[in-house]
Nucleic acid binder design. Sequence first.
DNA 1: TAAGCTCCTAAACATGTGTTCAGCATCGTC
DNA 2: GACGATGCTGAACACATGTTTAGGAGCTTA
Lengths: 214, 214
Amino acid sequence: MCSASSDLTAQAKIRNAAIAHFARDGFQKTNLRAIAATAGVSPGLVIHHFGSKEKLRSVCDDHVLRILIQRADNARPSGMQDLFREYLSNPEEYRLQVQYMLRAIEEDTPAAATFVDTLVAESEEILRAGIADGSMRPSSDVRALAVLTVLNSVATLTMPPPLARALGYERFGPDVLRRLALPTLELYTHGLFTNDTALKAARTALDESPQKRD
Amino acid sequence: MCSASSDLTAQAKIRNAAIAHFARDGFQKTNLRAIAATAGVSPGLVIHHFGSKEKLRSVCDDHVLRILIQRADNARPSGMQDLFREYLSNPEEYRLQVQYMLRAIEEDTPAAATFVDTLVAESEEILRAGIADGSMRPSSDVRALAVLTVLNSVATLTMPPPLARALGYERFGPDVLRRLALPTLELYTHGLFTNDTALKAARTALDESPQKRD
DNA sequence: TAAGCTCCTAAACATGTGTTCAGCATCGTC
DNA sequence: GACGATGCTGAACACATGTTTAGGAGCTTA
C-alpha cells in the first residue's frame, strides 16, 4: 500500500481520490466535494486543475486504462482468466482499478471501450490458439464466443448484490469467486447438457428465421 | 400497443410513465418532471399521489414484480430460458418490464431480490430435475450452478454497450441475442475445453487454500 | 345554490452540486 | 526588496431537482 499522500502532487492526490470514489460509488453519485475532502483539498482546486468533473473522469479513465493495459502486456497472453487470478491474489490496489474499469464499462466511457476491445481481442486470440492446438473445441462463431466469455467474466466480477445474497454472501467478494470457480470450470469442461437436443433445436430455429425484423 | 392514456387514472398514467423512464434511464437519472411530462401531468401531482420519488419507485417495483412473477407462474417451469424466449418473441410491453427489473437488480431493490430469488429457485429446480432424469450432468454445487446460470442470463440481457459493439452491433438487442444463442448452447452442450486439466488444477488449488482470509 | 370533497396545477421553496471568482500565500527571479 | 507566477482557499453563484403549499376546477350532496 503506497497511499503516501504527502509526496504526491495535489493533482495526483485528486486523481487518486476520484478513482477511488468513482470505483466505489460510480461517477454520478460521486460529488466533487467528496473527492476534494478525500484528497485533503478544496473543491475549487479540483476544477482549477481539471477543468470540470467530466474532464477529471476522462483523466481517471486514461490513467486506469494505461495501468491495466500495460499490466496485461507484462503477463501475456493475459485474457480475462488472468483478471480473476490477479483479482484473487493481488492486494487492494489492483482490485480498485478493476472495479473502476468495470464501472466505466457499465457507463460506457471511451476508455472502457478500448479496454473491452483489448479483452475481447486477447480472448479471441486465446480461443483460436486453443482450438488450433486441440485443447479447446472448435466453435461455429469464435468471435461471439470470445464476447461471451468476456461478458460472463465481467458479469461475475460485477455480480449484483441480490445474486450474491442468493448464494448466501452479503455481497460479491473473493469468497463468491471461489464458490463459483468449480461450477464454472465444470461447465467449461463438460458442458451442462448430456445430449444435443437443445443445441439442434436452436440450430433449426435459427435457420428458419435467419433474422427477424422487429 | 395499448397505451391509451385517456382511460387510465392519473395514478396509473404516472406509474406507467415512471416504469418506462426508470427502465430506460435508471432511477437516479430520471427526474420527476420528466415522468410528469410523459404522464401529461404536473410534477406536484406525482408527489401528491405517491408521497415521494422513493415511494413511487417502490410502487413501480411491486407492480412490475407482480406482473413478471404471475407470468412466470403461467408458463411453468419458466426459469431464465423462458425469459429469453419471451424477450425475443414478445412485443414491447414485456421487454419494458424485463428491462425495468434488470435495472432494479442492478440497483438492488427489495422487489429485485424477490425476483432474483424466484429465478434462482426455479433454475435450481430445473437443474435438479434435469440431473435426476439424466438430461443434465451432475454438479458439485447445484446451488452455485443455478446462480451462475441466472447470472450469465442476466448479464446477457444487460450487456454493456462496449461489448455489444465488440460484436459489431450498435447496442444490445434481439440481433445480439440471436448471435450469442449458438455459442452459448454449444458451450452448455459440449463445454469449451477438450480435457480436464484446468478443472483438475482448480480442484487442487481450491483444496490447498480452502478459504483465504483477505 | 352553497358547501365540501377530490383531483389537480402553478409557483415557490430547499437543498445538493458543478462551477466561478476574488484574493491570499509561497516561491523563484530581477 | 519588489514582483509576478503558481497553487490554493473560501465564499458565492447558477442551476437542477425533490418537495411543499396555496389555491382553482369540477363534481357530489344537502
